[in-house]
């Protein structure tokens, strides 16, 4: 990796959202390919995710780094679109009906995006039907990911997954669930394909599910 990309990776990992876009531009001006620049940042986020999994860093740093990455990607987006970019597939993500919490969901969204997916983020308080409708509009979707942060909205997560499970397209997609009160047992019980404990594992799991 060139010195400038190494520097960029360091800046992303440190979450320097203000400096990252300029550094991306600098890298491009120095002749780095957009795709290499993106991969450099994805690599940095992988490291961040790994450190998070190992309890070396915590949610705040993840959020800060993920945002720095996002700022960098914004610079690259027009160029990547021209090149076709990297696309591991589409992921529909949202916090289930009755729940307005989205920081965890956003983190997963950013990590999955960093892993090369195209993410359709439906936001918070998403009715179950909305997940289904969005799939119908985007039949190339590979994964639907649903989040519930409150103990009190776990039933809503159950209903959402139940509705998705009834659909004819169910065999073509994977369903991931997550959120603070969710467990792997609960995920299995309600018929989801995967549960991960944190955002970094979610990104890795998503890659694994579509591989």
């Amino acid at each position: 990796m060139s010195a400038i990309l190494e520097e960029l990776a360091g800046l992303v990992a440190a979450g320097k959202a203000k400096i990252v876009p300029g550094k991306v531009q600098e890298a491009l001006d120095a002749g780095e390919a957009p795709i290499d620049t993106l991969n450099c940042m994805i690599g940095a986020m992988d490291v961040v995710g790994e450190r998070f999994k190992n309890n070396e860093i915590f949610v705040p740093e993840m959020l800060i780094a993920a945002r720095a990455m996002k700022k960098g990607v914004e610079v690259l987006k027009p160029m990547l679109a021209e090149e076709g970019g990297v696309n591991a597939g589409k992921v529909i993500i949202g916090t289930v009906a009755g729940d307005l919490h989205d920081i965890g969901k956003n983190l997963v969204s950013m990590m999955i995006e960093s892993a090369g997916f195209e993410v359709i983020d439906l936001g918070v308080d998403v009715p179950a039907e909305k997940f289904v409708e969005t799939y119908r509009a985007n039949p190339d979707t590979k994964i639907i990911a649903c989040s519930a942060l409150l103990t009190t909205t776990m039933p809503s997560l159950r209903d959402t997954v139940a509705l998705i499970n009834e659909q004819d397209f169910r065999k073509d997609i994977k369903v991931m669930v997550g959120g603070a009160p969710i467990t792997a047992e609960f995920a299995a019980e309600i018929g989801a394909d995967a549960y991960t404990e944190d955002a970094a594992s979610a990104a890795a799991k998503a890659k694994e599910l579509v591989a």
């Binding site: 729940d99 307005l100 918070v124 409150l150 909205t153 809503s156």
Partner: peptide, 13 residues
Amino acid sequence: LGIDVDSLVHAPY
């Protein structure tokens, strides 16, 4: 007051 808290803990709270 023994009032149902269902609406309190489901969006829009």
